[in-house]
Design a protein around this nucleic acid. Structure first.
Lengths: 150, 150
DNA sequence: TTAATAAATAATAAAAATTACGAATAAAAG
DNA sequence: CTTTTATTCGTAATTTTTATTATTTATTAA
């Protein structure tokens, strides 16, 4: 499912910041473009290492950080740590995430318009709304496991 | 502002799981009870070390993890890493968090009742809704800084 | 097309965060 | 008080992240 548009979007995002388009960055863009879910720094490292056996952690972390700061990638923290995914810039939406396999679907409902008055007079910058549950496959698996315990 | 009720609530939470109430756990409960904001594992370690100079990381991490799993503490990830706070179990609510000082105020609005139909037929378990911004103090500080750049 | 340049990477090393484990300790139950 | 065993200590190993310097390479322009 290599999504050429996404690759190009990521690379354009990098170029628009005046960044150099290196082979490593191209490969990273392609990896995230073809990945539905989330990738940890280690996942990225393991993948990149196939083509660039001596790739440095520095390269991985620097690019993940810079691309996140630039809004091209999004950072999430799961229970097992930091992960990244290509951010969908098409339109604002939120995520419904499987707690087992991390498979994610998006939905358009955003609670912010309904938030008329917040306490504390904060200068609101952004928000985070995520719903967690089990996808049909993992929910079925879970039911089986609890019915037949070892 | 040591909140005795909160200390007791945390300790009861531990006892109800059949856990032993050790001196270290009592001190940890007291620390979280008197802390408004968030504590990193290191914060906890530094504090506990004052009374128990030889305290082990194992003790810190194990208790933080177990207390979070039991719902007594809540886990959050900020940009500077994993942090914990005593979870407010009084009633369901969400948080408005200062991106600079982490000062947090709560509000009661919950978007879930309005979420009529979600895609993917997930078995919804829980959700997370947080609003990020700057508290009045930090917002003012930021405006000053941007007006007079070095 | 090639040379100049500055950014990005490799190849470490160091630092920080987290987890692991046997021996010692102490909370809880009888 | 004694026993039982969960918990902690003391230490080390592992994992994750950041830092540093020499080298490489993408880009610009001559």
């Amino acid at each position: 499912m290599a999504n050429t548009n996404t690759v190009e979007r990521i690379i354009k995002g990098m170029a628009s910041k005046g960044w150099r388009i290196t082979e490593q960055r191209k490969m990273m863009a392609a990896l995230f473009a073809e990945t539905e879910g989330y990738l940890s720094p280690k996942d990225v490292y393991e993948h990149m290492r196939q083509k660039y056996p001596g790739i440095s952690f520095d390269t991985i972390y620097r690019n993940l950080r810079q691309l996140s700061e630039a809004g091209v990638f999004e950072q999430f923290y799961f229970n097992d740590g930091l992960k990244f995914r290509a951010s969908c810039l098409t339109h604002h939406h939120h995520h419904l995430i499987c707690m087992n396999c991390e498979k994610t679907v998006t939905f358009d409902y955003c609670p912010m318009p309904n938030l008329s008055e917040l306490p504390g007079n904060y200068e609101v910058m952004h928000h985070r709304f995520e719903v967690y549950g089990y996808c049909p496959e993992c929910a079925a698996k879970r039911r089986k496991e609890t019915k037949q315990p070892t």
